[in-house]
Design a protein around this nucleic acid. Structure first.
Lengths: 192, 192
DNA sequence: TGCCTCGTGGCAGAGTCTGCCACTTTGAGA
DNA sequence: TCTCAAAGTGGCAGACTCTGCCACGAGGCA
């Protein structure tokens, strides 16, 4: 199988790159370094990944994919806020399952100015896709501002939780995520 | 005055770049093109702007600066949600004042994949600064998740409004922004 | 006037990413 | 089994962004 070998190589490349990034920092590792360590040609690297950055931001796209998948298989009749919250909880479970890996990733992403920005949000295309699906599920127009705000806020809230969780400052992560997601429909409780 | 000439050059560069981007699209304009049209050396361009991208994303940083400035001169004793909402309203006024310019910018930003992502959020450093100031004003810890969610959601909500406004699909923009900001404390109203 | 500072420009180089082409491997059909 | 088409791979050259370094020249100061 060609695809198998290809997939093997891709995974190997990600692992090698991750190791190098952890050792020297994202900015001090070149694509050539990764290629040498992973035993592939630079030209091939760029066939696997459109950009060096993609090696690191891949998990974000995976998390966004979890949301779209969740929405694809969601039963009809639920409130949009409930739908998106359930999806975010599923992503939360994913994060909990891959905690060490993602914590390492967070560590790497924080080292580079360039990466921080890329790591700080859902890629626009995927966000738009989530909005589309959520709107379709609730029988609403995809331009409805409430749907879009729900998505933007849900991902924003998640980002805050994600950062706290990986920083290790949370006692009861999942209940905390629930509490944070509740602000979608109830607003942020008064700070004092 | 040296500084005057420098500022003149910088402004001229931005204007020239903006014109070229509108004509040919961001990706089809090189730094060299801009330099030729603005009559400066490429080396000088990169002394003005750390990255080509910065020519375009400058307004975003300016908007974030409006928020931090607003918080700097805000009276004590207001609720955080009120503080950040007032700040966002001020940014809204800024956007209304520079509508055409920003609409052109939005047009340009949408052409390039790379730019869309950069254009899609507040730079992490400035977001962190806003959180710091808001937390300080409310006498809260800057790690308080409610403060951070307020900031993230406020900027997220604003992004949705901003996009609608510049797309020209809003009848009463400023009241609409108010309604959207109200979701910070009251949650997003049920979509149906 | 003479010095000194600072912005500028040119140059070379590192690094990312792409188009092109030739080579090799893989899988399918004769 | 042999052959051929398809697809992945690697090498090469090149465009482009961005940076360090140094020399030049034009303001500002004594």
């Amino acid at each position: 199988m060609r695809d198998r070998k290809r997939e093997q190589n891709r995974v190997k490349t990600v692992e090698v790159a991750w190791r190098l990034f952890m050792e020297r920092g994202y900015d001090n590792v070149t694509v050539a370094d990764i290629c040498a360590a992973a035993d592939i040609a630079p030209r091939t690297f760029h066939r696997y990944f459109a950009a060096k950055e993609d090696v690191v931001t891949d998990p974000i796209r995976r998390m966004a994919a979890i949301v779209t998948d969740h929405l694809a298989s969601a039963p009809a009749g639920l409130a949009p806020a409930e739908l998106i919250s359930a999806a975010m909880r599923e992503v939360g479970a994913f994060v909990a399952d891959h905690r060490e890996w993602l914590a390492a990733l967070r560590h790497v992403a924080r080292q580079s100015q360039h990466l921080r920005a890329a790591h700080a949000g859902v890629p626009p295309e995927q966000e738009a896709e989530i909005v589309r699906r959520l709107a379709a599920l609730s029988g609403k127009d995809e331009d409805d501002w409430r749907v879009r705000v729900l998505v933007v806020n849900a991902t924003g809230v998640f980002r805050v939780w994600y950062d706290d969780y990986l920083a290790g400052t949370l006692d009861d992560p999942l209940p905390r995520l629930d509490a944070m997601l509740a602000t979608l429909t109830q607003g942020v409780p008064p700070v004092e």
